[in-house]
Nucleic acid binder design. Structure first.
Length: 421
RNA sequence: GUGGGUGUAGCUCAGUCGGUUAGAGCACCAGGAUGUGGCCCUGGGGGUCGAGGGUUCGAUUCCCUUCACUCACCCCA
C-alpha cells in the first residue's frame, strides 16, 4: 500500500470541522476590529536569522524545531515557527509605526515546528495573534488580554484560567536567574535529570517542572518580586488592577515562565482545565519591549499574544451545535429525460437567484435521488417529469414534514415558495 | 530526540489458544412500493487482516524488523 500521504503532523481539514474554524476566524475579525486592531499578513517563509535574533538562539524552537531550507542562492530560509517576529520585521521594513509610534495588528495563519505530534500539537499548526506596538503603559497589557478574553468567551469557551506573571526587565531577570541558580545548585542531587539540565541551560524553567519533588524544592526558591525595580512592580500591579476593574478573573503564578527570549515584564497564559490533555495552553503572550529595537527598528515597546486555533477548535468540538449544517434549499429530481432537461434549466436559474440548489448527475432512480436529497440535508425537493413539464407545475415537497404544495415552474414561483417554506 | 498504546471492510470494532470460503453494527447500492426520502424487510458490492522478512505442512494469528497513527515526556499555541 504505497499511497501518498500528508507530511507527518500536517493535517487536512474537512467540512463539518472546518465550519468551526470559519466561526473562530470570523469572530476574531469582528472582536479584534472592535478593539481597533487591523489584520496583517506576512510571509510564511522568512530569513532564518530573523527567528534566531528574535526568538533566541538557545530556545528549543530555534535550536531543534525549525524547518530550515536553503534557497537557490544559498540563503537560509525558515518556515516561521511563530508570528511575532515576522510582524515586527514587516512593520519596521515598511515603516508602519507612524509618528504617534503606534500600531495595532492581528494575524491568522499557519506556523511550523518540527516537533513530535500529539494531542493539540502539530507540525503545521495555526495561530491567531495580536501585536500592540508603541505603548509601554500597563493599560495596553490589560487591553490586549481583555481582547483575547472577549474572543474566547464569545466563542463559548469555558473552564479557562488566565495565569499571570512578571519576568521583570532583562537585567532584573539576570539577577533573579543567578539567585535561582545559587538556590537550586544546592539541591542539584534531588532534582530530576531534566531539571539538572535546565539548571545549566535555563534556570527559570525549573520553576515549571511537573515532577512532584522538583515542585516541592521550587516552592522554597526565591521569588522574583525581590529582584524587581519599583517601576516593574508598579507596572505589574497596574496590570492586575486593570484586569480587576474589567472583572476579568486571573491568577498570579510565580511559576509561569515563557519559552521565547524576547519577553519582559508581563507574561500570561490562558490554560484549559480540561479537554486538551497535557498541551493545555490555549493562548500565551506578554510584553516584548526590546524586540523591535533588537530587530533594527526604533526603541518601540510592544505587547502581544498568540492563540492556537487547533486547541480552540478541540475545545469547541466538544460542545454541541458547534458545526451548523450546510443545508440546501432545494434538490431537483427528475423522472425521465424530459424532466432532466427541465431540471437542469431550473437548477441554474435558481442558483443565479442565490438559492442553494442541486441535482443528482448520475441519472439514478427517483428513489435514489430522494435519498440523496435527504442525506444532503435539503429543505425541499421537486420531482420533474414529462407530466410536470407539460403542465408547467410541480409538487414542492418539504422533507421535514412530508407535506407538498403545488408550484408553477414558470417565472420566479419556485423561488417565492422556497423563501416562504 | 525518548517512552507507551494501536494498526482487520468507507467508519466503529469483534475474532482466530496457528487450519478450509475472516465477521458484526453503521454506511453504501439495488429491490419490496415499476415517479417520492427518513422507519421496516430482503438481497448485494466491498478486505492482498499496515508493510517486509522469519518459524511452520500451513501465518491475519507466533517471532523479528519496519512504517503509520496515537498518547505522554522534552518543549510549546
Amino acid at each position: 500500500m504505497t499511497i501518498l500521504r500528508a507530511v507527518k503532523g500536517m493535517n487536512d481539514l474537512f467540512c463539518p470541522e472546518l465550519n468551526i474554524w470559519q466561526k473562530v476566524e470570523k469572530t476574531t475579525a469582528e472582536i479584534f476590529s472592535a478593539y481597533g486592531f487591523q489584520e496583517i499578513r506576512t510571509p510564511i517563509l522568512e530569513e532564518l536569522s530573523l527567528f534566531v535574533r528574535s526568538v533566541g538562539e538557545e530556545t528549543d524552537i530555534v535550536g531543534k524545531e525549525m524547518y530550515v531550507l536553503k534557497d537557490r542562492d544559498e540563503k537560509l530560509l525558515s518556515l516561521r515557527p511563530e508570528g511575532t517576529a515576522g510582524v515586527v520585521r514587516a512593520v519596521i521594513e515598511n515603516n508602519k509605526v507612524g509618528l504617534d509610534g503606534e500600531m495595532k495588528s492581528f494575524y491568522i495563519g499557519p506556523m511550523f515546528r518540527r516537533e513530535r505530534p500529539q494531542k493539540g500539537r502539530l507540525r503545521q499548526f495555526h495561530q491567531i495573534g495580536a501585536e500592540f506596538l508603541g505603548v509601554s503603559e500597563p493599560t495596553v497589557d490589560v487591553e490586549v488580554i481583555a481582547m483575547l478574553h472577549d474572543l474566547l468567551s464569545a466563542l463559548g469557551l469555558q473552564n479557562l484560567r488566565l495565569i499571570l506573571n512578571t519576568l521583570g526587565q532583562p537585567e532584573e531577570r539576570v539577577d533573579y536567574a543567578k539567585a535561582l541558580y545559587d538556590y537550586f545548585v544546592l539541591h542539584a542531587d534531588n532534582i530530576c535529570s531534566d531539571c539538572q539540565r535546565r539548571l545549566q541551560k535555563n534556570t527559570l524553567r525549573i520553576l515549571d517542572c511537573k515532577q512532584p519533588h522538583c515542585i516541592k524544592i521550587a516552592e522554597e526558591a526565591p521569588l522574583i518580586q525581590a529582584f524587581l525595580s519599583e517601576e516593574s512592580l508598579s507596572h505589574f500591579d497596574e496590570v492586575q488592577a486593570g484586569l480587576s476593574r474589567l472583572a476579568i478573573p486571573y491568577e498570579v503564578s510565580p511559576r509561569l515562565v515563557r519559552g521565547l527570549d524576547y519577553y519582559n515584564r508581563t507574561v500570561f497564559e490562558m490554560v484549559a482545565s480540561l479537554g486538551l490533555g497535557s498541551q493545555n495552553a490555549v493562548a500565551a503572550g506578554g510584553r516584548y519591549d526590546g524586540l523591535v529595537k533588537k530587530l533594527g527598528g526604533r526603541d518601540v515597546p510592544a505587547f502581544g499574544f498568540a492563540a492556537g486555533i487547533e486547541r480552540i477548535v478541540l475545545l469547541l468540538a466538544e460542545q454541541v451545535d458547534a458545526a451548523p449544517a450546510n443545508l440546501l434549499d432545494v434538490v431537483l429530481i427528475y423522472a425521465d429525460s424530459v424532466g432532466k432537461e427541465k431540471a437542469f434549466e431550473l437548477l441554474y436559474d435558481l442558483r443565479r437567484k442565490n438559492m442553494k440548489a442541486d441535482l443528482d448527475h448520475k441519472g439514478r432512480s427517483v428513489k435514489a435521488q430522494m435519498r440523496r436529497a435527504d442525506r444532503l440535508g435539503s429543505k425541499t425537493v421537486i420531482v420533474l417529469g414529462e407530466k410536470e413539464v407539460q403542465e408547467q407545475r410541480g409538487q414542492l415537497k418539504l422533507l421535514s414534514t412530508g407535506e407538498t404544495l403545488s408550484v408553477s415552474l414558470l417565472g420566479s414561483a419556485i423561488e417565492e415558495a422556497l423563501k416562504i417554506s
